[in-house]
Design a protein around this nucleic acid. Structure first.
Lengths: 234, 234
DNA sequence: GCAAAAGTGTTTTGCTTACACCCATGA
DNA sequence: TCATGGGTGTAAGCAAAACACTTTTGC
């Protein structure tokens, strides 16, 4: 056979999302060496011998950001291997989507010093915001997250252990970039079996009536689904 | 740095689906050499230098099965790289889902002689039906196909250029493994804007009233969606 | 009392289901 | 004429959207 398989290095790139100040934010690393030195990029790194892809994702998340991937929602999105996508040669990238609650930023020690949360800039996205082809990777990861909010309880992964319905609504509003009716949202969420369960406790907002606190339920699929407004309008 | 990135070869594995005799079928290859000689596996092959993943998928589809990937629905599903998944060493596999109409089997020439359609065996699936980890890959690809029938016009990719509503219903029934009410299905499909458009022509079934023929519309998302019966029942 | 956020009730509208019923053909 | 699949009508039930209204806090 004349054609030999090419040898690739395989990188994991992480699109780590959270909600900060009511806005969707992504965890970025300022690159300290070429290629793309000084530019911002998704955190990531190479798969090592004997490592499964999920393991690499957890390890890189810890090394580069200080976050514990075992407690976060973490899922594979897709793989990119367009020739020339990495100036260092034949590097395939397996993209992962991670969802984190609004954590204190510390991420002490190690390489995490270069990590920071940045609001997702929908204008600059796909127009040279991030290094490599990370604009495309982030766009695909965002679309995955948006889609999964509809039929899975993924939104609770953006929240702390306990949360109010208003906080959950803020997640949907930030990720979908829409305004939702608080009254209908409340009824819809509490009507989906296994989505959220009341803890009995309450929390006082700065002003206003105290909100009941909830924790994640055990549903893995939402029924009925939380459909995006205007979803599919031609 | 003590840890070097491992070098991988990257394979594309194809889950090519069609409907044959009212049943969901997958295209399999009987392996002619070790490892897993004599066992059946998904068709596939290695990514070559300078090739994008989609290109490899199209090329392998043509070489191993005689099908033209440029005219088929073809989409990436996910990547598998669990250590030890391939006895030949560090081989990552990028799985693709392909959908074909019920084509005449010829697939003349080349390696396609070893290719054959097999009904999807849901019992043996995940219990050592296919070589490598292809049971898992096929299961994931099937789940992708099942999910996409709900919100995308993917079902038309199983049909020829023109088709009847009954044929389209047979696709949903075969992929979802359910019975659907023909009357309600007809109304639902024709009510989704851009899903199917009437050609004006008709076709006579062996017995019964002639059926109107349709072709694919230009919708990329179905609204309202074709929800799976019982979808999400706890 | 006022502002603000939480939460309930009600109406309208649209989709889904179940099923009765009619249509057009081959044998 | 009968069997068979194609296709329409209709009513019940669930879910979504819009919005009036009440509750409970901090100031």
């Amino acid at each position: 056979m004349p054609h030999q398989p090419t040898a690739f290095r395989i990188a994991i790139d992480l699109a780590v999302l959270t909600i900060r100040d009511g806005h969707l934010a992504v965890l970025l690393i300022e690159r300290g060496q070429p290629p793309f030195e000084g530019r911002v990029a998704l955190p990531g790194g190479f798969v090592r011998a004997g490592e499964d892809l999920d393991d690499t994702a957890v390890r890189e998340l810890s090394e580069e950001t200080g976050l514990d991937g075992r407690t976060l929602h973490l899922e594979q999105v897709r793989t990119y291997a367009t020739p020339g996508r990495d100036p260092r040669g034949a590097v395939a990238s397996v993209a992962y989507l991670a969802i984190a609650p609004d954590l204190p930023m510390p991420m002490a020690g190690t390489d995490a010093a270069r990590a920071r949360w940045e609001p997702v800039d929908h204008d600059r996205l796909s127009h040279g915001w991030l290094a490599f082809d990370h604009d495309i990777i982030l766009r695909d990861a965002l679309e995955r997250a948006r889609a999964k909010l509809e039929y899975s309880p993924l939104a609770t992964a953006f929240c702390a252990e306990t949360f109010t319905i208003g906080e959950l609504r803020a997640v949907y509003e930030a990720v979908w970039q829409v305004r939702l009716d608080p009254r209908n949202f409340h009824r819809k969420v509490t009507g989906v079996s296994g989505f959220v369960v009341p803890t009995g406790a309450q929390r006082n907002p700065p002003t206003g009536r105290p909100a009941a606190l909830y924790r994640r339920g055990n549903a893995t699929l939402l029924h009925p689904a939380m459909l995006r407004p205007d979803n599919g309008r031609q």
